[in-house]
Amino acid sequence: MRRLDQRGVMAMQFCLVAVPLFTLIFAIFDLGRYAITLQSLRSLANAGARAVMINCYTNSVILKNQPTGCTGDPLPTTAAKQAVAPFLFNGGLSPTLNVPATASSPLVVTASSPNFKMLMPVWGTTLNAPSVTTKIPF
């Protein structure tokens, strides 16, 4: 009986295993990058909330009156934001930090990265442009 030619079988088996393996590895890297971005946005929102509390909380707020003039960007310079969350500026991204103009209780500080995109197409657009909020009671 004659043996079948086995040349190239290992290369074909590697191709069958390599595609799902590398897809899984890149998906893990992509989710890790997303998690780091969310944590950096949380740090930025918390730093903005601290700036709002330092600059806007006066004696009138302690007496349960609504703070005034606490809207816009609590960390207006890019250098201040980059000192808090340097990872958010990789790849030319620029995060935004905002306190809405309508003062309500609690004040909400929102940090977002509108230009962030996931690298793997399997996620679709659901994880693009992450945003995090921090609430400040008064």
Results as ranks from 00 to 15, higher is better:
5 D>Q: 12
5 D>L: 09
10 M>Y: 01
13 Q>D: 00
13 Q>N: 00
14 F>L: 14
16 L>W: 05
17 V>I: 15
17 V>L: 15
21 L>F: 13
21 L>S: 12
22 F>K: 09
23 T>I: 04
24 L>H: 00
27 A>H: 01
28 I>L: 04
35 A>E: 05
43 S>W: 12
44 L>I: 10
45 A>G: 14
49 A>E: 03
52 V>A: 11
53 M>N: 08
55 N>S: 05
58 T>M: 06
61 V>R: 03
62 I>F: 13
65 N>Q: 15
65 N>K: 14
69 G>Q: 05
70 C>G: 07
72 G>Y: 02
73 D>T: 11
74 P>L: 11
76 P>F: 07
84 V>W: 11
85 A>E: 04
89 F>E: 08
89 F>N: 14
92 G>H: 10
92 G>A: 06
94 S>R: 09
96 T>D: 06
99 V>C: 02
100 P>M: 04
101 A>Q: 01
106 P>Y: 02
106 P>C: 09
107 L>E: 13
109 V>I: 14
111 A>L: 04
111 A>I: 01
111 A>P: 02
114 P>R: 05
116 F>L: 08
117 K>F: 02
120 M>K: 05
122 V>C: 12
126 T>H: 08
127 L>E: 03
127 L>R: 02
129 A>L: 08
129 A>D: 13
130 P>D: 10
134 T>W: 03
